[in-house]
Amino acid sequence: MEYREIGKTGKQASVIGLGCEHLDGKSYDQVKETIDAALEHGVNLMDVFMPGTEVRENIAKALGNRRDQVMLQGHIGSTNLNMQYDISRDLPVVKRYFEELLKIFGYIDFGMMFFIDSEQDYKNVFETDFAAYVERLKQQGDIRHIGFSSHNPETAMKVIHTGVPEMMMFSINPAFDMLSSQASIFECLDHGFQSGAFNGIDPIRAELYKLCNQKQIGITVMKTYGGGKLLSPEHTPYSRPMTPPQCIHYALSRPAVASVLAGCKTRDEVSDTMSYLLAADTEKDYTWIYNEVHSVFQGNCVYCGHCQPCPSGIEIAAVNKYLDIARLDQEAVPPSIRSHYQSLLHGGDECVACGSCEERCPFGVPIIKNMMEAASLLGKGRTFPV
C-alpha cells in the first residue's frame, strides 16, 4: 500500500480507502470478510456516511480491537428518517445520529459536514448553529479533524474560504474534469492553462483544485467510477469502457487528492481493487480519452441516492438503474429487469412530480420524466400531474 498526507491534518491515508456504503444491508459475516480484506491490504481510511445503526454496529464489531488502525470519515447531518437516508440540519436530529456514531466507534477521525452542494446547503450550515456544533465536537475531541462532502465546486470553494474544514470528500472522475497526465498539474494550476494541458476541464473545478493546494485541503474521492458507468460497455461516455486502474489513477493524479474510496462489499472486490497497486503504467494509462471529451454525465443518474427521500417512498436510484438497462433494448426488456422493477415497494407510477428529488440531484437528472418512462416501460402507467 502507498500512503499520502491528507492536506494539513498531519495524517497519512492509504491511497485506496474503503467506502462502506455497499456493506449496508449485508450480513455481519460479509462485512467482516470485507473489512478484514481491506486491513490485510493496508487500508487505513474508511468512510461510514451511512446513518443506519445495523451497518455501523457491524463495521465496529468487525474492526474489534483494531479500531485505532483505521481512520474513519463520519458524516454530520446524515440521517435515516422514515426508513430513508436523508440530509438534516436540524440540530437535535443531527446530534442524535452523530452521537450514536460516536457511541459506536468511540471517536471519529474526520467529522464530515454532510452534502454541502447548494447555496441553501451552505447557509443551513454556516448561518446556523450547525457549524458551531461541529467545531465544538472538535474542541471536545469527539472528532479529530473537520471535513465536508460536496459535488459542487463553487459551493466547495465557498466552504473552504470559511477556514473551518481541513479536508473534503469530492466527486472526481474523467467525465467530470479532463486533465492530461503528461502535464505538470501544479504548474498548470499555478500559471494558467495556456500550455493546452487541460482539455475541456471545467475552469471552476480547476480553480477548486488550485485552492485546495493553496490552503492544504486534502481530498478524498467518491464517484471514482461514475456510478459504474465508466466501466460499462453499454453506458460509458467514451468509445470503450475505462478500467478500474485507469479510473483510480486518474483520481489519484488530481491535485490535493490523498485517497480514493472504493465501494467494495466482498473480499474479492477488495482484492480486485488493490490490483491497481501492482498495475503497470500501461495499465493505468487513461490518455486515450482526451480525444473523446464528453459531458454526458450531466443529466445522467449515477445512482448516488442524494435525490432521496421521496415522499412517495420511491427508491429513485433503483428505478433509474432498471430504466437504464431497459433503454438498451426497449422492445426486448429482460424479464428479470421487469421483475426486479415490479418487486419494488414503490414504482415510478407513484411519482407525484413534486420535484424535490430534482432539486437535490447534483447532476441535473430529469427524474420526473424518468419515473414516467419507467412506469411505461417496466410497469403499469398512471396519470402524472403536470
Rank of each mutant, 00 (worst) to 15 (best):
G218H: 03
K229I: 09
E234L: 12
G226K: 05
G228K: 05
T220L: 12
T220I: 14
E234I: 00
P245C: 11
I248V: 14
L231C: 09
L230P: 02
T236H: 09
Y225K: 00
G218D: 04
G227Y: 03
G218W: 05
G226R: 04
K229S: 13
G227E: 02
V221G: 02
I248H: 03
M242Q: 07
V221K: 01
M222N: 03
H235V: 00
M242I: 06
C247Y: 01
G227W: 04
L231K: 07
Y238S: 07
P241H: 12
T243D: 08
T236V: 10
I219C: 04
S239H: 14
L231Y: 11
G226S: 11
P244Y: 07
I248M: 12
S232E: 07
P233M: 10
P241C: 12
Y225W: 11
P241S: 12
P245W: 10
I219K: 00
P245Y: 10
T220N: 14
Y238T: 08
T220Q: 15
M222H: 06
M242E: 03
I248G: 01
M242P: 04
Y225P: 03
P233L: 09
H235W: 13
E234C: 07
S232F: 09
G226D: 04
P245L: 10
H235G: 04
M222I: 15
E234N: 15
G226P: 02
T224N: 13
L231M: 13
Y238D: 08
K229Q: 13
G227K: 04
L230W: 07
V221H: 04
P233F: 09
K223C: 03
P237A: 13
Y225G: 02
S232C: 11
M222R: 03
P244I: 09
G228N: 07
K229C: 05
